[in-house]
Design a protein around this nucleic acid. Sequence first.
DNA 1: ATAAATATTGCATAATTTTGCATCAAATAG
DNA 2: CTATTTGATGCAAAATTATGCAATATTTAT
Lengths: 248, 248
Amino acid sequence: MLKEERLDYILKKLRTDQKVLQTELSNDLQVSEDTVRRDLESLAQNGLLIKVRGGAIPHSPNPYSFKERIVFHEDDKKVIARKALSLLENGQTIILDGGTSTLSLAKLFPQHLQLRVITNSVPIVVQLMDHPGVEVIFAGGKIVKDSQTVIGMDTIRMFQKVRADIGFLGVCSLHTAVGVTGPDIEETEVKSTIVEASSRVVALATSDKMGTAEHFKICGITDIDTIVTDQPEDELFIPYRQMGLQVL
Amino acid sequence: MLKEERLDYILKKLRTDQKVLQTELSNDLQVSEDTVRRDLESLAQNGLLIKVRGGAIPHSPNPYSFKERIVFHEDDKKVIARKALSLLENGQTIILDGGTSTLSLAKLFPQHLQLRVITNSVPIVVQLMDHPGVEVIFAGGKIVKDSQTVIGMDTIRMFQKVRADIGFLGVCSLHTAVGVTGPDIEETEVKSTIVEASSRVVALATSDKMGTAEHFKICGITDIDTIVTDQPEDELFIPYRQMGLQVL
DNA sequence: ATAAATATTGCATAATTTTGCATCAAATAG
DNA sequence: CTATTTGATGCAAAATTATGCAATATTTAT
């Protein structure tokens, strides 16, 4: 039995049962539990499920809402934001790029979250201003009215002084060959700086942005560590996974 | 049964019943009360519920406490802002300090006004973001939540690079001998920088602030050029006039 | 085609986590 | 104040996971 077949079986079972147990899978697939564990591990690595002690559960935006039958028809951005939220841990320093995806993320911050957030987005600052646990640092600069962000040298300089645990990039175009691109030169310059300032770079991208490109380059595709998207199972993402990116 | 299933069950029960008891859960889930307690603990850790003696209750649904902003002297400030407005001319570059007085001023900007505004106040940025004729430059830095402004070295550095025609200082204490003072060292440092960066310094002050002092000095009284206030005829202002200040 | 390199798999063993229980401290009710 | 319940802590048994290793299969290079 090929490895691929096993992985396929696991995902299928996960979809129908909403959970899988290692002992069960080991029996079903006639392989050792070690192998099952390693299979689950690789699937978890690609964000296709969440490994827990004793088995695995589906990758759900909320790590603890396990078998939630009430399906909210959330829009894509909220789904993405909810997933991205699970990447955050107390005590981290993160950068939030401008854009509606990152704003959605900021809106979801639970009250108990303790973070330091550096951003160039006015709505994000407004959103987080009243949050008790988040220290907000605003990158200064010239306000761009229609995007409600600041850009320019001052903004870039501020980000250059930062070492963030995670940098979240708002929706941009992603292309395996061309890399990450955006439509505005000044905006992309800021985004490039964010990429450099972050240990881990997470791109929030709706699947319709995949495989597209704009005129100004932000970074290469491998400079991204994680893509958080609404349809992670789409075959569209296979090449990205092969390049070592995590797709959630 | 996976731990996650237990956690899920607990959360679901909590949603329907609005409370959970350890003894009940222990029975429902067929695990010891210790385990239930540990489960509740981990859920509480993640902010998903509040642990109470004997069980748990749901996390407050309205976690974000919006501070009620009690506005003192709102009408006075409007009067002051209206007078200050008359000092502005098209094409000027001005600095707006944080505070409600300066915010009132920004709110009065007529649509045809052409200005460049540099500020460290978030509400002012939000207010002016949609103004067609005003270019807004935001000084970056760490957000102070209750005053909704940014302070710190980055903020100061930004103001140091500026030469403004007029700098508007929000309400501070004024005293003929002590000068202009404020209650917070970091805030006063920023204000001092604004004073230095401005050709003309305008203080917006309700009359009750006259003759009072705080602990941290912003500048000498003669560094101010104009005081805009609600009761300019008051004899309180005679000494300031004698020192050459304009009182409006 | 053959050899070498690489990856997969299962097993033994060690380390870690989870769980339930006993014990004692703290809080609550009567 | 005392009895009872609940919470905290240490501990040991059981389950799960990680790790090293050898056997086997697969891929790559020559």
